[in-house]
């Protein structure tokens, strides 16, 4: 894909779901939509830093929608991003104590949370819990799991990159790492229940 060219929505979606040029696809989204999303936050009592945080989370929810096959292709990327960004920012405002801001916004806008988006938001909360547990794993485990599940490396490629003696060794190590992660999760009843709830809410 030519990096100088403006990508269409379909090209962006294809590159993300095919896990090909994720960095460039995300960059294209930033180039095309950052300003619109930032303006929304700025015009609704937010600062540039608020906008940056909200947009970062918006992107995560958006990518999760694609990853979990919940992105409806008839909707444009712009409208989906705008919807997520608005929901996230209104949720942030709701959490803040400023009654003034809260009333200002709710009087102006009726919050229509898209069903799939709200499910994705619930899922993300569960993911954040697992991500926190993931951070506690050893460096090697984090590398193996990231290479396999995010970078789409094969066992053979991981064995070469991480200097393991065979694919089987990587496979065993990967299983141990996953087990460590799930054990941590199951060892904390509250956390486990929260993740199970997020899982149910996300369905």
């Amino acid at each position: 894909m030519n990096k100088g060219k403006v990508w269409t929505d379909q090209e962006i979606l294809d590159e993300i779901s095919g896990a090909n040029q994720i960095n460039e696809a995300v960059r294209q989204i930033y180039l095309g939509y950052y300003e619109i999303l930032e303006n929304y936050v700025l015009q609704n009592n937010g600062s540039e830093a608020d906008a940056a945080d909200t947009i970062q989370e918006t992107m995560l929810v958006f990518l999760n929608l694609i990853e979990t096959g919940k992105y409806r292709e008839e909707a444009s990327i712009k409208s989906v991003l705008y919807g997520i960004n608005r929901n996230l920012w209104l949720t942030t405002l709701r959490k803040r104590k400023s009654r003034e801001n809260r009333h200002g916004i709710y009087e102006k806008e009726q919050v229509q949370v898209d069903y799939d988006v709200s499910k994705s938001l619930a899922e993300i909360e569960g993911y954040q819990l697992i991500m926190a547990l993931f951070e506690k794993l050893g460096e090697k485990c984090k590398r193996i799991l990231t290479l396999f599940y995010y970078e789409d490396f094969s066992m053979k490629e991981i064995a070469e990159a991480e200097e393991f003696s065979s694919e089987q060794v990587v496979r065993n190590k990967k299983f141990k790492c996953m087990k460590q992660l799930t054990d941590q999760l199951e060892g904390n009843r509250n956390l486990y229940e929260m993740v199970r709830n997020a899982l149910k809410d996300g369905k």
Partner: peptide, 25 residues
């Protein structure tokens, strides 16, 4: 549950990518 855990790992990767792209942007 395991699928959810795998998705969380993927999302962790996405989060890292997003942070990098946003920082550069």
């Amino acid at each position: 549950l395991l699928l959810f855990t795998i998705n969380a790992i993927k999302l962790k990767g996405y989060k890292h990518t997003i942070r990098q792209v946003q920082q550069d942007f």
